[in-house]
């Protein structure tokens, strides 16, 4: 009995810890700028003020579009490549694959500060400096390790007998992929796409260094600049934070199961 009480007490306190910031964001975003004072931080707004969202929406709409464009293309490309790579590493192990795979995986853990300067120069040299395409390339490449890993582990579950059966039917490397492996990949793709979508949408370091002209800014950079500047009026950053969080939050709420699978796959074995 006491155990039960303690259990629910823990849950209650933890819920408070996780939800208080959410309450504060929503309440602040809905207050008039002049009604936001430090001492009345926690009170409900006296007048519900929706204008902040309108303002944040008009200011952030182009940045949200940038983020969508960037995220969708980079996610799909890295998922496709990851699927093919995973297929190769799971079913067609070429000589040296055992060495190559860990070398690939290391790429997903490196601190990007260690490649930032040459990367920056490289993107400029190939003529993609300051463009979203440059950022897409970077996200696709640095996304390869994780997408390859998830697909490789996923395809490892496909019995080798199925591949053998395909070969006996006369299918080759590509035939087996398109007729047997790819049709079975839908859950794998869902996991990878959700994972990459969240990662790329939320990314900041590459975005702030590689794409700094406001026309091409993704949402995270715009939000950091709005809040990091002389933000005396907190309603706007809070409304902006909600807008920036919404896409990944929706994905999480509706596809949470797959999101968690991607999370767990991040710790290598899955």
């Amino acid at each position: 009995m006491i155990g039960r009480v303690v259990q629910y007490a823990v849950l209650f306190v933890a819920t408070l810890f996780f939800l208080l910031p959410v309450y504060l964001v929503i309440v602040t975003a809905l207050k008039e700028p002049s009604a936001i004072t430090l001492s009345s931080t926690w009170q409900l707004p006296q007048v519900w003020y929706w204008e902040s969202f309108v303002q944040a929406w008009t200011a952030f709409l182009p940045k949200l579009q940038n983020s969508f464009f960037l995220t969708v293309i980079a996610t799909l490309l890295s998922a496709m490549l990851g699927s093919l790579n995973g297929y190769v590493l799971a079913k067609w192990r070429f000589p040296g694959a055992n060495i190559v795979f860990p070398l690939m995986l290391f790429g997903m853990f490196i601190p990007y500060q260690a490649v930032l300067i040459p990367l920056f120069q490289f993107i400029r040299e190939i003529g993609l400096g300051g463009t979203l395409w440059g950022l897409i390339l970077v996200h696709v490449v640095y996304g390869l390790p994780i997408t390859t890993l998830i697909f490789r582990n996923y395809y490892a579950e496909i019995p080798d007998e199925m591949i053998e059966a395909g070969r006996i039917d006369g299918a080759g490397f590509f035939g087996i992929y398109s007729r047997i492996v790819f049709p079975l990949s839908v859950p794998g793709f869902v996991v990878v796409i959700i994972w990459q979508f969240t990662q790329i949408w939320n990314e900041f370091l590459f975005a702030v260094t590689l794409v700094s002209s406001p026309a091409n800014q993704p949402i995270t950079v715009a939000l950091a600049q709005l809040a990091g500047g002389e933000a005396v009026k907190w309603n706007l950053p809070m409304a902006g934070a909600l807008l920036a969080a919404l896409p990944t939050l929706l994905v999480y709420i509706f596809l949470g199961r797959y999101f968690i699978r991607g999370l767990l796959a991040g710790s290598v074995k899955g």
Partner: peptide, 11 residues
């Protein structure tokens, strides 16, 4: 800092 990334980045 932003200006620098733009100038160095050829933009």
């Amino acid at each position: 800092a932003v200006l620098k990334t733009r100038m160095l980045g050829g933009d």
